[in-house]
């Protein structure tokens, strides 16, 4: 039992990170109907930028917000420069362009930072040692991740549901043509969506870097788990993405332990099973709206 709880705690912490990246995927999918295969690598590159800041002697609490702002700007730039020209192109073209993003950031990171893993510190103020409650060890950093996620969700909720900008963002995503007619600058709204997504992704990268090692491929696995999370939660539901992420985190943690065949090597297979199963049984995911496919 103790072990089970321990696994759930760890799984939930990882799941929060998957949920964050899934949130980024979903924000982009909702507004532009693109699955951004480059999302993980953009996050990875942002994490390296953050590492560079830290390495240059900047404090954690300065470096991280600065990175997020840069990631936000970069997300906007990517949308405006690379994605917008192909926005209405066939799906294959868009998939290819996002794969191009994947390759580009991956190889750029390898080029600049080499493949040698970099140590990434815990946030200042968060202690390494764990608390013991009964038989259970609680790692402060896990709680920190959880708190960050909850805070971010609250901020996004207020932004999307309670502000005029949020109304515009949602409208532009749902009905671009009508939005244009009421004077919403749809192109900018979509770009802002990409910016927010890029910042959320960067946060996922920064949060996971202390746990797994920072190297150019470290987001690849996390991306697959996030795909699974977004698929499970529904590609058009931001809360679904987070719930899906936590679910996937737990499935992976528990499955790896209790299903002998899976072990630690095949945990990615679990994620893939989830993806395929969800797509077959309930393509819109748990929280997505079932929409009859228009052809």
């Amino acid at each position: 039992m103790t072990e089970f709880i321990q696994l759930v705690l760890a799984g939930t912490a990882n799941g929060c990170i998957y949920g964050l990246l899934a949130l980024a995927l979903v924000l982009i999918y909702r507004s532009t109907h693109i699955i951004n295969f480059g999302q993980g690598e953009m996050a990875m590159f942002s994490t390296y930028i953050c590492w560079s800041f830290l390495n240059a002697g900047m404090g954690y609490w300065v470096a991280v917000p600065l990175t997020l702002i840069l990631a936000f700007a970069a997300g906007i730039a990517v949308q405006r420069i690379l994605i917008r020209p192909v926005q209405n192109a066939p799906e294959l073209t868009i998939v290819i362009v996002t794969l191009g993003l994947y390759l580009f950031f991956n190889s750029l990171a390898l080029w600049i930072y080499s493949g040698v893993p970099k140590p990434f510190p815990l946030p200042t103020g968060i202690r390494q040692a764990s608390w013991q409650v009964g038989d259970i060890f609680i790692i402060p950093y896990h709680l920190f991740i959880f708190a960050v996620l909850i805070t971010l969700m609250a901020v996004l909720y207020v932004l999307f549901q309670r502000t005029k900008l949020g109304l515009g963002l949602r409208a532009a995503a749902a009905q671009p043509a009508s939005s244009r007619l009421v004077g919403i600058n749809v192109n900018w709204m979509l770009a802002l969506g990409w910016g927010i997504a890029a910042a959320a992704g960067a946060l996922a990268g920064i949060l996971s870097a202390p746990v797994v090692q920072l190297e150019p491929n470290f987001m690849a696995t996390i991306l697959i788990f996030s795909f699974a999370s977004a698929t499970l939660g529904g590609f058009d539901s931001p809360p679904g993405a987070v719930v899906g992420g936590i679910a996937i985190g737990n499935i992976v943690a528990l499955g790896g332990r209790y299903i002998e065949f899976i072990g630690t090597q095949l945990d990615i297979v679990l994620a893939l099973v989830v993806i395929v199963a969800v797509l077959l049984i309930r393509p819109a995911g748990l929280f997505g709206r079932q929409v009859v496919q228009r052809v």
Binding site: K164, L167, G168, R170, A171, A174, Q175, A177, S178, S179, L181, V182, G183, I184
Partner: peptide, 19 residues
């Protein structure tokens, strides 16, 4: 008609006043 189908009637009117 260009209705914002997933939004409430009131939100539709607010969207109309977006500018």
């Amino acid at each position: 008609r260009g209705t914002f189908t997933d939004f409430t009637v009131e939100e539709n009117l607010l969207l109309g006043a977006y500018s």
